[in-house]
Design a protein around this nucleic acid. Structure first.
Length: 575
RNA sequence: GACCCCGUAGCUCAGUGGAUUAGAGCGUUUCCCUGCGGAGGAAAAGGCCGUGCGUUCGAAUCGCACCGGGGUCGCCA
């Protein structure tokens, strides 16, 4: 796809090159700040320096020498000081942008950059036998947005849910089930009961050595593949995933695989052997397998002195497996910032072992969630917020607003809108800013219905759809092709912004930053708001203008919908 | 002690080498429903871009040092 904005950029580059005063490679273009009345600029500082010229003079000379074709998207060329400024041709831009959005539909904004390339995204990773909480929501939501973005960029994306389904704590889980039986209920309620059971057993085992021994036995039986232990373990996995799936469905999350840590158990001995054999690791006096002096990173372990394996061991095996199974060009980890060092060590080790050569290994480190008092959320502090409850609460609050704003909607639709608005607010709270920032769980901010909020974006979409619906109903001029009429300043601004979705998608992908798309959506809603205020659509001065404006509204709705889908946010037709 | 992330308006955040006036939202103070969804739009007030030194024709943006906040540092994940 060669979008209008890309064609414009190419035309500018070629026009400059055609003057014979600059090589194509020397032409670095920038997007001017909003207060500059231009759409693309060529700062001539560098070229002037190379040629021993004065920048403003060079810019003026270039401006005089540039020739623009009859059907060019370039409207105006102007030298302003040392800058050579290019503006788009408003009428031709309107025709190009609006028609390409309507023609490409849900594909508008996508690319083929990643053609024949594969990306593995590691995200969500809930712990088995526990409820998902706010700590998992960030990985899940940001991860899914990254998956969506890379699919939109044309990559083949493989999502993998690296379940926390292994480790010493399972001995306690299984022992507690033997002790108290399986908890009643389903979903998160059952998991909550299981967590309580776990806590009771763990507390009791502190004073009762026979209980402690029981847990140890179960842990051992599980590792040795004992059928009964395995069956109980599988039951806890199923129970957890069933609950997780409800949350995933609501969040629009779909993860291709869920191998989980347990899957790699058979590969671990081999990984340790290999690390020892190739000399990056050694076995110390205590029997632990140690890696030190690796790229100035702190020393770390690949195997415990009691011969047990570690998170690191399983993560190495995971990369080995992913390379063999998927041959990806990139592996992306959507994991919290506290694990940054662990992942640097992992990446360094895997490279030292000769794996993943030429493969991009990326850690998208997201910040920690704090409560309103600035405390980290934790079970022990008792301030933990669980995902299902969070979503339910958000939806409940949204339902009250819907009831107040749109009392005439059918009840079922009110429910659907509340679900979209409530869940959308939770999702947007994780996507509207740079993931690496720590965030405070602020209900007011999260469930805001004004300003830079999911609700505002959904509202803008609903207004677009409402206009189009009413246009069909009143029998007047429908969306039409007289797009060159769209030259009102607020129309031009909106169109220019709509033209930027494709590059926003690219930038968001390159930076692993969904907020770039969120920002684009927000600005779209703002520009549409201004247009809506200043330009009557249904009662436009002429039928032709009405048709053109309806086309612009349709294009805005389509582009906004595409942007929101990338973020995983639903857009109701009315609300 | 070492390393990583952050520090921009009262609050939450964009902007990370270039253009008279560093942008949004929330909050505050005003306006705009005889025109389509007011979950909207307009305007005002509010900033030594943590501090200092440096690099550069040019620094919120790059480098160094410091200060403040968050985090991590062999047998958890």
């Amino acid at each position: 796809m060669n979008y209008a904005l890309e064609r414009f950029t190419t035309e500018v580059r070629e026009a400059i090159a055609a003057t014979g005063q600059a090589e194509v490679g020397q032409i670095e273009l920038t997007t001017p700040r909003p207060n500059i009345p231009a759409d693309l600029a060529f700062p001539t500082f560098r070229l002037a320096k190379e040629r021993g010229l004065v920048a403003p003079q060079l810019a003026a000379d270039l401006a005089a020498a540039i020739r623009v074709g009859d059907n060019s998207l370039i409207g105006k060329v102007e030298a302003v000081g040392p800058f050579l400024n290019f503006s788009m041709h408003p009428e031709r831009l309107a025709v190009a942008v609006v028609s390409e959005i309507l023609a490409t539909g849900t594909c508008y904004g996508t690319h083929r950059d990643g053609h024949a390339q594969r990306v593995v995204v590691d995200y969500s990773a809930p712990n088995i036998a526990k409820r998902m909480h706010v700590g998992h929501i960030r990985s899940t939501i940001i991860g899914q947005a990254i998956v969506n973005l890379y699919r939109a960029l044309g990559y083949e994306v493989i999502g993998d849910n690296h379940l926390g389904d292994w480790g010493k704590q399972f001995g306690v889980v299984l022992a507690s089930v033997e002790h108290e039986g399986k908890p009643e209920g389903v979903g998160e309620a059952a998991l909550e009961a299981l967590e309580a059971q776990y806590a009771r057993f763990a507390a009791a085992a502190k004073d009762d050595l026979t209980l402690d021994e029981l847990a140890r036995q179960w842990s051992l039986r599980l590792e040795q593949g004992d059928p009964q232990a395995r069956e109980l373990w599988q039951w806890s996995v199923d129970l957890t995933m069933e609950a997780a799936q409800r949350n995933y469905d609501r969040l629009g999350v779909k993860i291709d695989h869920a191998y989980g840590e347990s899957f790699y158990e058979p590969m671990l001995a081999g990984v340790i052997q290999e690390a020892l054999a190739c000399g990056v690791a050694y076995r110390d006096a205590g029997g632990a397998v140690v890696i030190e002096n690796l790229q100035n990173l702190p020393t770390f372990l690949l195997q415990r002195s009691d011969s047990g394996t570690l998170y690191m061991t399983r993560d190495v095996a995971t990369i080995v497996f992913r390379m063999r199974e998927f041959s990806p060009q990139k592996i992306v980890y959507v994991v919290g910032e506290p694990q940054a060092l662990h992942l640097r060590q992992l990446f360094a080790l895997i490279r030292a072992m000769g794996y993943a050569a030429g493969v991009e290994l990326t850690h998208i480190a997201f910040g920690t969630v704090f409560d309103a008092q600035g405390q980290p959320l934790s079970t022990r502090r008792g301030n933990m917020v669980y995902l299902e409850a969070l979503l339910d609460d958000a939806v409940r609050r949204a339902r009250a607003v819907v009831e107040h704003k749109s009392p005439d909607l059918p009840e079922a639709e009110k429910d659907a809108v509340a679900e979209a608005v409530g869940v959308g607010a939770v999702v947007y709270n994780d996507l509207y800013q740079d993931p690496k920032r720590n965030i405070t769980l602020d209900w007011e901010r999260m469930l805001a219905t004004e300003g830079n909020s999911a609700t505002y974006l959904q509202y803008s979409y609903a207004r677009c759809r409402s206009l189009l619906r009413r246009a069909r109903e009143d029998g007047g001029e429908g969306p039409s092709g007289e797009l060159a009429l769209l030259v009102h300043p607020s129309e031009v601004r909106l169109i220019k912004h709509l033209a930027r979705l494709p590059e926003a998608v690219r930038e968001a992908g390159a930076r692993y930053a969904p907020f770039v798309v969120a920002d684009w959506c927000y600005t779209t809603a703002r520009e549409f708001g201004v247009f809506f205020e200043q330009c009557p659509v249904l009662k436009a001065e002429t039928p032709l203008l009405r048709g053109a404006r309806l086309s612009l509204v349709a294009a805005t709705a389509q582009a906004l919908h595409n942007g929101l889908s990338l973020l995983g946010i639903q857009a109701p037709e009315r609300m």
